[in-house]
Computed example of a mutant assay.
Amino acid sequence: MPTALERIDLRTSGETKALIARAAATAGMSVSAFLLSAAQERAKVVLSQTESLTFTARDWEAFVTALDQLDQPRPKLKAAMERYRIWHARQTDA
């Protein structure tokens, strides 16, 4: 079953519309296809900048070292979890 297409509406100046239409025609695309293509490319760039990490060699070593220590005991975390269990038990008993 085909997925329903969503609609995006926007308003712009005549000058901007003409510019986009000219660029779309030059690229051999419809205005809609041109806008969607440009928006998708920009969205991927923006998301890749916020959803990925770039480490220096020193930072990478620190990151890997921290990951290697995940199985180390964490007394403060264990105590906090126990306090939460006690608090939660009191809430459900009330």
Rank of each mutant, 00 (worst) to 15 (best):
E41G: 01
A79S: 12
L70N: 14
R22L: 14
S52M: 03
D68Y: 04
R74Y: 05
Q69A: 14
Q49P: 02
A21I: 13
L67I: 11
S30R: 11
M81W: 00
I86K: 05
E82D: 12
S30V: 10
S32D: 15
E41N: 04
R58Y: 02
F55A: 00
G28E: 09
T56F: 00
K78T: 14
M81S: 09
A21L: 13
A89F: 06
W60F: 14
Q40V: 01
L36M: 10
A79N: 09
L67G: 14
S52R: 07
Y84K: 12
S32Y: 05
S30Y: 08
R22P: 07
A23W: 07
T54Y: 06
D68V: 04
S30G: 15
F34C: 01
A33F: 04
P75S: 04
Q40W: 06
L77E: 11
L19P: 09
A39I: 06
E61Q: 10
S52I: 04
A38W: 02
L53H: 09
S32M: 07
I86A: 13
L77R: 08
D71A: 14
L19Y: 15
S30D: 12
L67A: 11
K78Q: 14
S32W: 02
A38K: 04
A39V: 00
E41C: 07
A80D: 10
A23Q: 14
W60D: 12
Q69D: 13
T26K: 11
T65E: 11
M81H: 07
A33C: 06
S37R: 15
K17V: 10
S48M: 05
F34D: 01
A43I: 02
V31A: 08
V45I: 08
L53I: 05
A38C: 08
A38N: 01
E82W: 04
E41Y: 05
E61H: 06
A43M: 04
T26Y: 14
I86N: 04
Q72A: 14
Q49N: 15
M29L: 15
R83I: 05
L35W: 00
A57N: 01
E61S: 07
A25D: 15
V45P: 03
A33M: 08
T26I: 12
A89K: 09
A62T: 07
Q72D: 15
R83N: 08
T50C: 01
T26S: 13
K44W: 06
A89E: 13
P73N: 14
A27S: 14
